[in-house]
């Protein structure tokens, strides 16, 4: 995946480059808002990682101008400001995701990959069936089955599994799950999300030979056939 990192802090930019490169991505950097915007326009990237505070042109304005000119590459905002207001502001300007500094490297990689990779089934595309391996979900009858075995899920478990299935093959973090499945934007201090995942795992994996729901150490979870 080709990622453009627009970040003025040299050391921080190097750090981001390193973790993204280690995750197997092709990373380019820009040091300020104007050259970042120019690079984003003239070359095809899969994801833009944009710091909010940039010399020459603030990140917010950069993304806005990029979007106004028809740029479609998904953008992830990085910011030391993590207020809900700032997040909303960033998303309004045209960013697709928002990550507050400091962040765990795995969180950044997971979010970049979710943004950039062709999602198995995008969140907003209406489908009636999702399928990962022998796990099947019927969104109309709200039925889940693995092979021939029917699986009964609570409404929230259903939503959680739907999100995981739409992002099959991608690592999703706990914070992402709290944001996307519960719609809350704070850092869960306890293991509440893990407990929900283990419930779900008990239902979809326990009786079966091949587990689908993997824990990615230090990062989150991945549903994979």
């Amino acid at each position: 995946m080709r990622v453009l990192v627009i970040e003025d802090d040299r050391e921080h930019a190097d750090f981001i480059c390193r973790i993204l490169t280690e995750a197997g991505h092709d990373v380019e950097t820009a040091q300020d808002g104007i050259s970042g915007l120019v690079r984003a326009r003239e070359s095809a990237f899969d994801v833009l990682v944009v710091d909010r505070m940039l010399p020459e042109k603030p990140g917010l304005q950069l993304v806005k101008e990029y979007r106004d000119a028809g740029g479609a590459t998904p953008a992830l905002f990085l910011s030391a400001l993590s207020d809900v207001d700032n997040r909303v502001e960033g998303l309004k300007a045209g960013a697709d995701d928002y990550l507050a500094k400091p962040f765990a490297p795995e969180e950044l990689v997971a979010r970049v990959e979710v943004l950039g990779r062709r999602q198995a089934v995008p969140d907003d595309v209406p489908v009636t069936r999702l399928k990962v391996g022998d796990l099947e979900m019927d969104l109309l009858s709200r039925r889940v089955a693995r092979g021939e075995t029917r699986i009964d899920l609570q409404p929230r478990e259903f939503k959680l599994l739907e999100f995981l299935m739409r992002h099959a093959g991608q690592t999703v973090t706990r914070t992402m799950l709290l944001e996307k499945v519960w719609n809350y934007h704070f850092d869960p201090q306890t293991n509440v999300i893990d407990v929900h995942i283990s419930r779900l795992r008990a239902k979809i994996d326990k009786e079966f030979e091949r587990p689908l729901l993997q824990t990615v150490r230090g990062a989150g979870y991945c549903l994979q056939a």
């Binding site: 306890t190 407990v195 929900h196 283990s198």
Partner: peptide
């Protein structure tokens, strides 16, 4: 309700 639902499994665990 949502917070209850979020925490109930953790309590059981």
């Amino acid at each position: 309700d949502e917070m209850a639902e979020l925490f109930a499994p953790a309590c059981e665990d």
